Simulated scan of single mutants.
Amino acid sequence: MATFDAHPEVPPKDASTVILIRDSASGPEVFLLRRVGGMAFAGGMTVFPGGGVDPQDADADVAWSGPPVSWWAERFGVDEGRAKALVCAAVRETFEECGVLLAGPTADTVVADTAGYAQARKQLEARELSFSEFLARENLVLRADLLRPWANWITPVGEGRRYDTRFFVAAAPAGQIADGETSEAAEVTWQTPAQAVTDWIEGRTMLLPPTWSQLSSIGEYDTVADVLAAEPEIPVILPTLYQEEDGSWQVRFPGQEPYYAAGAHPWGER
C-alpha cells in the first residue's frame, strides 16, 4: 500500500466553508451546491458554500457584532489576524455563492432581502469590490454571532491544490433565499443530511470525506437550535491518501469506516 506524495511541497491555503441549516418537518436541512464539473478543485462534487480566504479579508475594517476576534482565534487555534480573515471569508463566500448575507443594518438585525445587492455580489465574486467596502457602503454590520465554529479539515498532502478549511454552521436568515446564482454552481438544493447521503450512496452525487463527515454530524441533531447550541471539539483533521492493490486511490481519515462501508467510490485516478 503506497502513500501519495506527488505534490508534497504544496502548502495549504486558508479557506472557510459555511453549513447553512434550516428546520423542516424531517429535521434540519442543509444547503448544498454541486460544483461545475470543469473546476480545478472538487469539480463536480456536492459541497457546502465556501472558498479560499482573500488577502483583503485579513485587512477588512468592518463593523462587527458577536464574539470578539480573540474568541474565534482560540476556538480555531490561530492568531487573531487569521481568525478575522476566516470569519470575514465565511460571510463573504456565503453571500457570493448563494446570496445569503449574514449582516444587518444594526448589531442585532439581519437584512431580510438581499436582491438589492445583486450587482455588488457580482462585483465581489469578480474581486472588483472588497467585502469591507461593500459593508461600509451599505452601512451593514457583520453578524459573527450568527456563525458557530464546527470543524477543521486540511486537504491531504500530495494534492496539487490544498486548503486548510474551517467549517462554520449558521441558520439561514428568515426572508433570505439561498440560490445558485454563481459561476461555480451547476445546481443547488436543500436536503436533510440523510437525503444527501442517500443520493451519494445511490450514485447521484459525489461527496468528499469532509462533506460526508459534516453531513453525518449535523444529522445527529433534531433541530437547528440544537445544532447552534452544540460546542463540538475541533481537532485538525489531515487525511492521508494511499493506493490500494488494485491501483485505486483512497483516503484515510478518522471515522472512515461508515464512509467506505456505504460504498464510497475510489478517490480517483492520479
Results as ranks from 00 to 15, higher is better:
138 E>I: 15
52 G>S: 13
182 T>A: 15
199 D>V: 02
147 L>C: 09
186 A>T: 12
202 E>H: 06
245 E>M: 09
118 A>G: 11
222 D>C: 15
121 R>I: 09
188 V>M: 14
152 N>A: 12
264 A>G: 06
242 Y>L: 04
247 G>D: 01
23 D>E: 15
78 V>C: 11
20 L>V: 13
1 M>Q: 12
155 T>V: 06
81 G>M: 09
89 A>T: 03
216 S>T: 10
68 P>G: 11
139 N>P: 02
246 D>W: 15
192 T>Y: 00
168 F>H: 07
29 E>N: 07
222 D>M: 10
24 S>A: 11
203 G>K: 01
161 R>D: 02
266 P>W: 02
255 G>H: 00
236 V>M: 06
173 P>R: 04
153 W>K: 10
213 S>R: 01
173 P>C: 07
100 V>S: 12
106 T>A: 15
48 F>Q: 06
173 P>I: 04
270 R>W: 06
43 G>K: 14
244 E>A: 14
262 A>Q: 14
9 E>V: 01
173 P>W: 01
24 S>T: 12
22 R>P: 07
11 P>Q: 14
126 A>K: 08
207 L>K: 02
53 V>R: 13
40 A>P: 10
23 D>W: 15
185 A>D: 07
61 D>E: 12
88 C>K: 08
229 A>H: 05
58 A>V: 12
49 P>E: 05
78 V>G: 14
186 A>K: 09
256 Q>C: 05
263 G>S: 03
56 Q>R: 08
10 V>E: 13
219 G>F: 07
206 M>A: 14
197 V>M: 08
257 E>N: 13
209 P>T: 06
10 V>L: 06
202 E>S: 01
37 G>K: 09
66 G>W: 01
78 V>R: 05
253 F>M: 12
207 L>N: 03
205 T>Q: 04
77 G>H: 03
150 W>Q: 08
59 D>F: 14
48 F>G: 10
99 G>K: 03
209 P>N: 11
111 V>F: 01
166 R>K: 05
195 Q>T: 14
207 L>I: 07
182 T>N: 15
159 E>I: 00
84 K>F: 01
269 E>M: 00
